[in-house]
Amino acid sequence: MDNFSTYREKHGFNWAALIAGVLMIVAGLFLILHPGRALHAFVLLFAILSIVQGFVWLAVYSHLRYFISFSWLAIISGVIDIIIGILFLYSYDAAGLTIAYLFAFWFLFDSVSGISFTWHLKSTLGPYFWINMILSVLSLFIAIGMMFNPALSALTLIWLVSFWLLIFGVSEIVAAFGNR
């Protein structure tokens, strides 16, 4: 959104930032009010991006084959990405469940990493060690809960994206008025 934030008209008011901010807030509120549609939108977006990425891998192969001996991996990646994208287009339920589990595994991995790093930095964190450890263990429990309840995982994803849109939408509106 830096393009919108840095754009100024002669009078100093940033109309592009205002419009971007309002659109972000509307999108964030829509996601909160319609989580089922939001998940379908994520699935559709992921499917399209997967298909496009597949074709990018296939195109990259033609350039890589002269320089890298294992460039055939680009063909395999491209075909797999295209297949996943097509499967997601035809099965929203399976795709939504897959995205929910991926999100849960992401939380799980970050939680375990947080515990590991906190433990190894015990001597340098001082009194903050216990705060970091408690928060990391709490996030581990949340991640495990998300794995056993994929609907919670999908809802968490939607809420995080919603709040991100709301926060940056307000930020863009403030930037629009701040340049006066």
Rank of each mutant, 00 (worst) to 15 (best):
I76H: 07
S77F: 04
D81Y: 11
I82F: 12
I83H: 00
I84G: 08
I84M: 08
G85F: 06
I86K: 01
F88S: 03
F88E: 01
S91G: 00
Y92K: 03
D93F: 02
D93Q: 05
D93R: 03
A94T: 02
A94F: 00
A95G: 14
L97I: 10
L97C: 08
T98H: 10
T98L: 13
A100F: 05
L102A: 06
A104T: 07
A104G: 12
W106N: 08
F109V: 08
S111D: 05
S113W: 15
S113P: 00
G114D: 11
S116R: 13
S116F: 14
F117G: 14
T124H: 15
L125A: 01
G126K: 08
G126F: 11
P127C: 11
P127I: 13
F129I: 00
W130N: 03
N132T: 01
S136E: 06
V137G: 02
L140D: 02
I144K: 02
M146A: 14
M146K: 06
M146G: 08
M147C: 02
F148T: 05
S153T: 02
S153I: 05
A154R: 01
A154E: 05
A154C: 09
L155K: 01
L160Y: 12
L160F: 14
V161P: 10
S162L: 14
S162N: 10
F163Y: 14
F163I: 07
W164V: 01
W164A: 07
L165I: 09
L166T: 09
I167Q: 00
I167H: 09
F168L: 06
V170D: 10
I173A: 07
V174L: 15
A175V: 13
A175C: 12
A176W: 07
A176V: 08
A176E: 11
